[in-house]
Computed example of a mutant assay.
Amino acid sequence: MTTEDTLRDTRIPLSDGSGALPAVGFGTLIPDPVATGLATKAALQVGFRHLDCAERYGNEDAVGNAMQEVFGHGAIRRQDLFVTTKLWNTNHRPERIAPAFEASLRRLRLDYIDCYLIHTPFAFQPGDEFHPTDGQGRVIYDSGVTLLETWQGLERLVDEGRCRAIGLSDITLEKLREIVAVARIKPAVVQVESHPYLPEWDLLDYCRAHGIVLQAFAPLGHAMEPKVIDDPVITAIARRVGRTPAQVALAWAVQRGTAFLTTSTSPRHIRENFEIAALPEDALREIRDGVTTRNRFNAVVETGVPGFIPRAGSN
Protein backbone atom coordinates (compact mmCIF):
# COMPACT_ATOMS: atom_id res chain seq x y z
CA MET A 1 0.00 0.00 0.00
CA THR A 2 1.28 3.44 -0.92
CA THR A 3 1.75 5.68 2.10
CA GLU A 4 0.29 9.16 2.36
CA ASP A 5 3.61 10.87 1.88
CA THR A 6 4.59 8.89 -1.19
CA LEU A 7 1.16 9.32 -2.78
CA ARG A 8 1.13 13.11 -2.61
CA ASP A 9 4.78 13.25 -3.62
CA THR A 10 4.32 10.89 -6.58
CA ARG A 11 6.31 11.84 -9.66
CA ILE A 12 5.59 10.25 -13.01
CA PRO A 13 8.68 9.90 -15.24
CA LEU A 14 8.33 11.34 -18.73
CA SER A 15 9.15 8.84 -21.43
CA ASP A 16 11.39 11.25 -23.34
CA GLY A 17 13.78 11.44 -20.39
CA SER A 18 13.08 15.12 -19.74
CA GLY A 19 12.25 14.64 -16.09
CA ALA A 20 9.29 13.58 -13.98
CA LEU A 21 5.92 15.25 -13.61
CA PRO A 22 4.62 15.72 -10.04
CA ALA A 23 1.27 13.96 -10.05
CA VAL A 24 -0.25 16.49 -7.66
CA GLY A 25 -0.35 19.84 -9.46
CA PHE A 26 -1.68 23.33 -8.85
CA GLY A 27 -3.55 25.14 -11.62
CA THR A 28 -3.30 28.92 -11.86
CA LEU A 29 -6.53 29.80 -13.69
CA ILE A 30 -7.38 32.59 -11.23
CA PRO A 31 -8.70 35.86 -12.70
CA ASP A 32 -7.36 38.30 -10.11
CA PRO A 33 -3.56 38.79 -10.20
CA VAL A 34 -3.28 39.51 -6.48
CA ALA A 35 -5.23 36.35 -5.65
CA THR A 36 -3.08 34.46 -8.16
CA GLY A 37 0.11 35.45 -6.37
CA LEU A 38 -1.22 34.63 -2.92
CA ALA A 39 -2.61 31.26 -4.02
CA THR A 40 0.60 30.33 -5.85
CA LYS A 41 2.69 31.06 -2.78
CA ALA A 42 0.26 29.15 -0.55
CA ALA A 43 0.39 26.14 -2.89
CA LEU A 44 4.18 26.08 -2.90
CA GLN A 45 4.29 26.45 0.88
CA VAL A 46 2.05 23.43 1.49
CA GLY A 47 4.09 21.26 -0.87
CA PHE A 48 2.85 21.56 -4.45
CA ARG A 49 5.79 21.33 -6.84
CA HIS A 50 3.99 21.54 -10.16
CA LEU A 51 2.46 24.80 -11.38
CA ASP A 52 0.24 24.78 -14.46
CA CYS A 53 0.03 28.12 -16.29
CA ALA A 54 -1.12 29.45 -19.64
CA GLU A 55 -0.78 32.50 -21.83
CA ARG A 56 -4.59 32.58 -22.00
CA TYR A 57 -4.96 32.90 -18.23
CA GLY A 58 -3.51 36.40 -18.44
CA ASN A 59 -1.62 36.08 -15.16
CA GLU A 60 1.74 34.51 -15.95
CA ASP A 61 3.47 37.61 -14.59
CA ALA A 62 1.72 37.19 -11.22
CA VAL A 63 2.78 33.54 -11.08
CA GLY A 64 6.34 34.50 -12.03
CA ASN A 65 6.56 37.14 -9.32
CA ALA A 66 5.22 34.69 -6.74
CA MET A 67 7.80 32.07 -7.73
CA GLN A 68 10.64 34.57 -7.51
CA GLU A 69 9.50 35.66 -4.06
CA VAL A 70 9.45 32.04 -2.87
CA PHE A 71 12.84 31.35 -4.46
CA GLY A 72 14.20 34.37 -2.62
CA HIS A 73 13.38 32.75 0.71
CA GLY A 74 15.75 29.91 -0.18
CA ALA A 75 13.67 26.88 0.81
CA ILE A 76 12.51 26.11 -2.76
CA ARG A 77 14.73 26.33 -5.84
CA ARG A 78 13.78 26.58 -9.49
CA GLN A 79 14.98 23.03 -10.07
CA ASP A 80 12.55 21.79 -7.42
CA LEU A 81 9.58 22.90 -9.53
CA PHE A 82 7.93 21.58 -12.66
CA VAL A 83 6.36 24.48 -14.55
CA THR A 84 3.94 24.01 -17.44
CA THR A 85 2.50 26.71 -19.65
CA LYS A 86 0.52 26.71 -22.87
CA LEU A 87 0.44 28.11 -26.40
CA TRP A 88 -2.88 29.84 -27.09
CA ASN A 89 -5.03 29.21 -30.17
CA THR A 90 -4.17 32.50 -31.91
CA ASN A 91 -0.48 31.57 -32.03
CA HIS A 92 -0.64 28.25 -33.87
CA ARG A 93 1.13 29.48 -36.99
CA PRO A 94 4.81 28.40 -36.91
CA GLU A 95 6.17 31.96 -37.07
CA ARG A 96 4.15 32.94 -33.98
CA ILE A 97 5.18 30.03 -31.74
CA ALA A 98 8.67 31.12 -30.68
CA PRO A 99 7.61 34.72 -29.88
CA ALA A 100 4.68 33.43 -27.82
CA PHE A 101 6.95 31.02 -25.97
CA GLU A 102 9.54 33.73 -25.25
CA ALA A 103 6.81 36.05 -24.00
CA SER A 104 5.63 33.38 -21.55
CA LEU A 105 9.21 32.88 -20.37
CA ARG A 106 9.57 36.60 -19.72
CA ARG A 107 6.31 36.87 -17.84
CA LEU A 108 7.09 33.80 -15.75
CA ARG A 109 10.65 35.11 -15.15
CA LEU A 110 12.16 31.73 -16.03
CA ASP A 111 15.02 30.54 -18.20
CA TYR A 112 13.25 27.38 -19.33
CA ILE A 113 9.84 25.69 -19.27
CA ASP A 114 9.51 22.09 -18.12
CA CYS A 115 6.53 21.40 -20.38
CA TYR A 116 4.85 23.46 -23.10
CA LEU A 117 1.39 22.42 -24.23
CA ILE A 118 -0.77 23.33 -27.21
CA HIS A 119 -3.71 24.71 -25.25
CA THR A 120 -6.29 23.31 -27.66
CA PRO A 121 -6.02 21.66 -31.09
CA PHE A 122 -8.11 24.50 -32.59
CA ALA A 123 -6.29 27.32 -34.41
CA PHE A 124 -7.92 30.76 -34.20
CA GLN A 125 -7.31 33.70 -36.51
CA PRO A 126 -3.90 35.10 -35.55
CA GLY A 127 -3.82 38.46 -33.83
CA ASP A 128 -4.02 40.18 -30.48
CA GLU A 129 -7.58 39.11 -29.64
CA PHE A 130 -7.77 35.89 -27.62
CA HIS A 131 -11.18 35.11 -29.11
CA PRO A 132 -11.49 36.64 -32.58
CA THR A 133 -15.11 36.67 -33.68
CA ASP A 134 -17.14 37.66 -36.72
CA GLY A 135 -20.15 39.94 -36.84
CA GLN A 136 -22.39 37.21 -35.47
CA GLY A 137 -20.11 36.53 -32.51
CA ARG A 138 -18.77 33.27 -33.93
CA VAL A 139 -15.14 32.35 -33.43
CA ILE A 140 -12.96 32.86 -36.51
CA TYR A 141 -10.86 29.75 -36.99
CA ASP A 142 -7.59 29.68 -38.93
CA SER A 143 -7.63 27.21 -41.81
CA GLY A 144 -4.12 28.25 -42.84
CA VAL A 145 -2.27 26.02 -40.38
CA THR A 146 -2.54 22.37 -39.36
CA LEU A 147 -2.12 20.90 -35.90
CA LEU A 148 0.92 18.99 -37.18
CA GLU A 149 2.59 22.22 -38.30
CA THR A 150 1.99 23.68 -34.86
CA TRP A 151 3.36 20.53 -33.25
CA GLN A 152 6.49 20.73 -35.38
CA GLY A 153 6.97 24.27 -34.10
CA LEU A 154 6.96 22.93 -30.54
CA GLU A 155 9.45 20.24 -31.53
CA ARG A 156 11.83 23.00 -32.61
CA LEU A 157 11.53 24.58 -29.16
CA VAL A 158 12.71 21.31 -27.63
CA ASP A 159 15.60 21.20 -30.09
CA GLU A 160 16.66 24.66 -28.92
CA GLY A 161 16.79 23.51 -25.30
CA ARG A 162 14.57 25.98 -23.47
CA CYS A 163 11.53 23.72 -23.44
CA ARG A 164 12.15 20.29 -21.97
CA ALA A 165 8.94 18.50 -22.89
CA ILE A 166 5.88 19.17 -25.02
CA GLY A 167 2.32 17.99 -25.04
CA LEU A 168 -1.31 18.62 -25.89
CA SER A 169 -4.34 19.83 -24.00
CA ASP A 170 -8.10 19.54 -24.56
CA ILE A 171 -7.58 16.90 -27.24
CA THR A 172 -9.60 13.86 -28.25
CA LEU A 173 -8.16 10.39 -28.59
CA GLU A 174 -8.69 10.56 -32.36
CA LYS A 175 -6.63 13.75 -32.71
CA LEU A 176 -3.96 12.45 -30.35
CA ARG A 177 -3.53 9.33 -32.47
CA GLU A 178 -2.94 11.51 -35.54
CA ILE A 179 -0.11 13.41 -33.86
CA VAL A 180 1.53 10.37 -32.27
CA ALA A 181 1.56 8.64 -35.66
CA VAL A 182 3.70 11.33 -37.31
CA ALA A 183 5.45 13.25 -34.53
CA ARG A 184 9.25 13.31 -34.43
CA ILE A 185 9.08 14.07 -30.69
CA LYS A 186 6.13 12.27 -29.12
CA PRO A 187 3.80 14.08 -26.70
CA ALA A 188 5.00 13.69 -23.12
CA VAL A 189 1.80 14.94 -21.49
CA VAL A 190 -1.86 15.12 -22.46
CA GLN A 191 -4.07 17.36 -20.30
CA VAL A 192 -7.83 16.83 -20.47
CA GLU A 193 -10.91 17.13 -18.30
CA SER A 194 -11.15 13.93 -16.28
CA HIS A 195 -12.79 12.87 -13.02
CA PRO A 196 -14.94 9.95 -11.81
CA TYR A 197 -17.81 11.22 -14.01
CA LEU A 198 -15.50 11.43 -17.05
CA PRO A 199 -12.81 8.78 -16.45
CA GLU A 200 -11.51 8.72 -20.05
CA TRP A 201 -10.43 5.09 -19.71
CA ASP A 202 -9.80 4.60 -23.44
CA LEU A 203 -7.61 7.70 -23.58
CA LEU A 204 -5.77 6.61 -20.44
CA ASP A 205 -5.13 3.15 -21.89
CA TYR A 206 -3.75 4.70 -25.08
CA CYS A 207 -1.51 7.08 -23.12
CA ARG A 208 -0.17 4.21 -21.02
CA ALA A 209 0.61 2.20 -24.14
CA HIS A 210 2.59 5.12 -25.62
CA GLY A 211 4.34 6.37 -22.50
CA ILE A 212 2.26 9.56 -22.28
CA VAL A 213 1.20 11.06 -18.94
CA LEU A 214 -2.51 11.79 -18.77
CA GLN A 215 -3.11 14.83 -16.58
CA ALA A 216 -6.62 15.59 -15.37
CA PHE A 217 -7.92 19.10 -15.07
CA ALA A 218 -11.19 19.59 -13.16
CA PRO A 219 -10.56 16.36 -11.21
CA LEU A 220 -13.43 17.39 -8.90
CA GLY A 221 -15.77 18.28 -11.75
CA HIS A 222 -15.64 22.09 -11.55
CA ALA A 223 -17.99 21.89 -8.52
CA MET A 224 -20.85 21.83 -11.01
CA GLU A 225 -24.06 19.79 -10.92
CA PRO A 226 -24.12 16.85 -10.70
CA LYS A 227 -21.34 17.26 -8.14
CA VAL A 228 -18.63 14.61 -8.19
CA ILE A 229 -17.92 15.11 -4.50
CA ASP A 230 -21.60 14.53 -3.64
CA ASP A 231 -21.70 11.17 -5.38
CA PRO A 232 -22.91 8.57 -2.86
CA VAL A 233 -20.13 6.12 -3.71
CA ILE A 234 -17.45 8.73 -3.09
CA THR A 235 -19.05 10.13 0.06
CA ALA A 236 -19.44 6.65 1.53
CA ILE A 237 -15.77 5.89 0.90
CA ALA A 238 -14.80 9.23 2.43
CA ARG A 239 -16.67 8.43 5.64
CA ARG A 240 -15.12 4.97 5.79
CA VAL A 241 -11.51 6.10 5.33
CA GLY A 242 -11.75 9.34 7.30
CA ARG A 243 -11.03 11.67 4.39
CA THR A 244 -13.01 14.32 2.56
CA PRO A 245 -14.81 13.42 -0.68
CA ALA A 246 -12.40 15.70 -2.56
CA GLN A 247 -9.42 13.84 -1.15
CA VAL A 248 -10.98 10.53 -2.19
CA ALA A 249 -11.48 11.68 -5.80
CA LEU A 250 -7.95 13.09 -5.97
CA ALA A 251 -6.34 9.98 -4.49
CA TRP A 252 -8.24 7.88 -7.04
CA ALA A 253 -6.76 10.04 -9.82
CA VAL A 254 -3.17 9.39 -8.71
CA GLN A 255 -3.65 5.73 -7.88
CA ARG A 256 -5.06 4.95 -11.32
CA GLY A 257 -1.92 6.40 -12.86
CA THR A 258 -2.86 9.94 -13.83
CA ALA A 259 -1.69 13.34 -12.66
CA PHE A 260 -4.16 16.03 -11.65
CA LEU A 261 -4.53 19.80 -11.28
CA THR A 262 -6.62 21.60 -8.70
CA THR A 263 -7.16 25.32 -8.34
CA SER A 264 -8.26 27.24 -5.27
CA THR A 265 -7.70 30.59 -3.60
CA SER A 266 -8.61 29.18 -0.18
CA PRO A 267 -5.56 28.16 1.91
CA ARG A 268 -7.68 25.49 3.59
CA HIS A 269 -8.75 23.94 0.30
CA ILE A 270 -5.24 24.22 -1.14
CA ARG A 271 -3.92 22.22 1.80
CA GLU A 272 -6.80 19.74 1.64
CA ASN A 273 -6.15 19.09 -2.04
CA PHE A 274 -2.48 18.38 -1.37
CA GLU A 275 -2.84 16.21 1.72
CA ILE A 276 -4.21 13.11 0.02
CA ALA A 277 -3.72 9.55 1.21
CA ALA A 278 -3.90 6.24 -0.61
CA LEU A 279 -7.22 4.45 -0.82
CA PRO A 280 -7.62 0.71 -0.25
CA GLU A 281 -7.99 -1.41 -3.36
CA ASP A 282 -11.65 -2.11 -2.69
CA ALA A 283 -12.38 1.63 -2.71
CA LEU A 284 -10.72 2.00 -6.11
CA ARG A 285 -12.88 -0.83 -7.45
CA GLU A 286 -16.00 0.78 -5.99
CA ILE A 287 -15.29 4.04 -7.79
CA ARG A 288 -14.60 2.32 -11.09
CA ASP A 289 -17.60 0.00 -10.95
CA GLY A 290 -20.03 1.89 -8.75
CA VAL A 291 -19.89 5.45 -10.09
CA THR A 292 -22.16 5.31 -13.13
CA THR A 293 -22.87 9.00 -13.82
CA ARG A 294 -21.15 10.24 -16.97
CA ASN A 295 -20.82 13.96 -17.60
CA ARG A 296 -18.50 16.35 -19.40
CA PHE A 297 -18.56 19.82 -17.84
CA ASN A 298 -16.35 21.82 -20.21
CA ALA A 299 -17.04 22.27 -23.92
CA VAL A 300 -13.49 23.26 -24.88
CA VAL A 301 -12.73 19.89 -26.46
CA GLU A 302 -15.52 20.54 -28.97
CA THR A 303 -14.82 24.16 -29.91
CA GLY A 304 -11.44 25.28 -28.58
CA VAL A 305 -13.26 27.87 -26.48
CA PRO A 306 -13.05 27.15 -22.74
CA GLY A 307 -16.50 27.20 -21.25
CA PHE A 308 -18.96 25.17 -19.28
CA ILE A 309 -21.68 23.15 -20.91
CA PRO A 310 -25.04 24.65 -19.85
CA ARG A 311 -26.70 21.52 -18.63
CA ALA A 312 -27.00 19.52 -15.44
CA GLY A 313 -27.43 15.84 -14.86
CA SER A 314 -25.86 12.81 -16.46
CA ASN A 315 -25.73 12.04 -20.14
Rank of each mutant, 00 (worst) to 15 (best):
D5W: 11
T6P: 03
L14D: 02
S15H: 15
G19E: 02
G19D: 01
L21S: 01
L21M: 11
P22L: 04
A23Y: 02
G27A: 03
T28W: 04
T28C: 15
T28K: 06
L29E: 15
D32K: 05
T36H: 02
A39N: 10
Q45F: 01
G47C: 00
R49A: 07
R49I: 04
R49K: 13
L51S: 07
D52R: 03
A54Q: 02
Y57F: 08
D61G: 12
G64L: 12
N65A: 14
A66G: 05
E69W: 02
V70I: 15
G72T: 03
H73M: 14
G74R: 09
G74S: 06
G74N: 12
L81F: 08
F82S: 05
F82K: 01
V83I: 15
L87F: 03
W88D: 05
W88N: 12
N91G: 05
A100M: 03
F101Q: 06
L105A: 10
Y112R: 15
I113K: 06
I113Y: 10
D114H: 08
C115S: 15
Y116V: 08
I118G: 09
I118C: 12
P121N: 02
F122V: 05
F124Y: 09
P126G: 08
G127A: 12
D128L: 11
E129D: 15
T133E: 14
D134M: 11
D134P: 10
Y141S: 09
D142W: 09
S143Y: 11
G144W: 05
T146Q: 06
L147E: 09
W151P: 06
W151K: 09
E155D: 11
V158W: 12
D159K: 14
E160A: 15
C163E: 01
R164H: 08
G167E: 08
L168C: 07
I171T: 04
I171E: 03
E178F: 00
A181T: 07
R184K: 12
V189M: 08
E193C: 05
S194V: 02
P196G: 08
L198R: 10
L198E: 03
D202F: 01
D202P: 04
L204F: 03
D205H: 07
Y206R: 11
H210I: 07
L214C: 11
L214P: 13
G221Y: 10
A223E: 13
V228L: 05
V228G: 03
D230G: 08
D230R: 13
P232T: 01
T235C: 08
T235S: 10
A236R: 14
I237C: 01
A238K: 11
R239P: 03
R240M: 10
V241Q: 04
Q247A: 05
A249C: 12
L250S: 10
V254K: 13
Q255M: 15
T258H: 06
T258V: 06
L261A: 09
L261M: 14
T263E: 11
T263S: 14
S264A: 14
T265H: 09
T265W: 04
S266K: 00
P267S: 10
R271M: 11
F274L: 13
I276W: 00
A278G: 13
A278P: 07
P280W: 08
D282L: 07
L284Y: 00
R288P: 01
R288Q: 13
G290P: 05
G290F: 06
T292K: 13
T293E: 10
T293F: 06
R294T: 02
R296Q: 01
V300L: 08
T303W: 00
G304Q: 07
G307P: 01
I309G: 02
A312F: 04
A312W: 06
